[in-house]
């Protein structure tokens, strides 16, 4: 589904005359399968986010190729690249929701932008505005908000939500176009443990119920170990190994805070 083939990404150092002074990634090769949750771990500056951003061509490789479902996004014309990006959802550490729009409007934004619903465009209905399209967008957005258990908050604004709630809204927005792949860039780094568990439980449900492949970048090893099937380990832009996370250790779900607290206080948990 996602293939990295000898991918190198170089940047020019500020003040340097020659391009390619710093390697953010160096000859990285890996693949991510269908419905797989694939982690990427490494210290700050190891190239994790650069790797993730190459999947939807927010960054383009200096050499090598990144292909998604056999398509090399870097080789596409901008218009085609934008179309491909709609099939790849992304959530960010800082959520990036629009402060002046309601939760519902935030989630419906990708649909209203393209006036398409799920696979309607693929079924021959063009991107032109259709009668009732906005209502249909709102219905679809509500469906996604219900999926992430945020349906009751649809009329609120982002400032009225907790960090975990904002991230779940961001996940709903990323999923509203029914992407094949969900990219998560440190989605729990700015959250406390309770909200981390809520977000991770949501991601596990995304894979279980939608079959979406998830590429998860995090420096939190517990998060990676608890959710991922495999994880790439990066160090200074080089892939130093891919860990097969033991099935027994992979959790089927994240406990609620109260459940975890009960287990911890009763001595059931390490």
């Amino acid at each position: 589904m996602i293939e990295f083939d000898q991918v190198t990404k170089s940047y020019t150092q500020p003040g340097a005359r020659r391009a390619g002074s710093v390697h953010a990634l160096h000859e990285v090769s890996l693949s991510v399968g269908e419905s797989e949750i694939f982690g990427v771990v490494g210290e700050s500056g190891s190239g994790k986010s650069t790797l993730l951003r190459m999947v939807n061509a927010l960054e383009l490789p200096s050499s090598g190729a990144v292909t998604v479902n056999g398509v090399n996004l870097a080789a596409l014309r901008p218009r085609d690249r934008r179309a491909q990006r709609r099939r790849i959802g992304m959530v960010f550490q800082q959520f990036n929701l629009l402060a002046n729009k309601t939760v519902l409007a935030n989630v419906a934004l990708p649909l209203n932008l393209h006036q398409r619903l799920g696979g309607l465009a693929e079924r021959g209905l063009g991107p032109r505005r259709r009668p009732g399209a906005e209502a249909a967008s709102a219905d679809r957005a509500r469906e996604m908000l219900d999926f992430v258990n945020m349906g009751a908050q649809a009329s609120k604004h982002p400032a009225q939500l907790s960090g975990g709630e904002k991230q779940r809204v961001a996940i709903a927005r990323a999923l509203v176009n029914e992407p094949d792949i969900l990219l998560c860039d440190e989605p729990t780094s700015s959250l406390d443990s309770q909200h981390t568990d809520e977000v991770m439980a949501t991601l596990l449900r995304v894979r279980a119920e939608m079959g979406t492949s998830i590429l998860l970048v995090s420096h939190e090893l517990d998060v990676i170990r608890g959710a991922c099937d495999r994880a790439a380990i990066l160090e200074s832009g080089r892939l130093t190994g891919i860990a097969e996370i033991a099935r027994l250790q992979a959790r089927e779900s994240f406990d609620s805070y109260s459940e975890r607290a009960r287990k911890y206080l009763e001595g059931d948990q390490e």
Binding site: R53, N56, F92, N96, L98
Partner: peptide, 30 residues
């Protein structure tokens, strides 16, 4: 306006002009 807002626009398929018009300028106006 945080760079992430541009990227959020790009990831949902916006062009640079669309992201500027629909995401960035309303926030910059404030």
């Amino acid at each position: 306006v945080p760079k992430g807002q541009w990227e959020a626009g790009y990831t949902i398929g916006m062009s640079r002009n669309q992201a500027l018009r629909r995401l960035i300028l309303p926030q910059a106006a404030r």
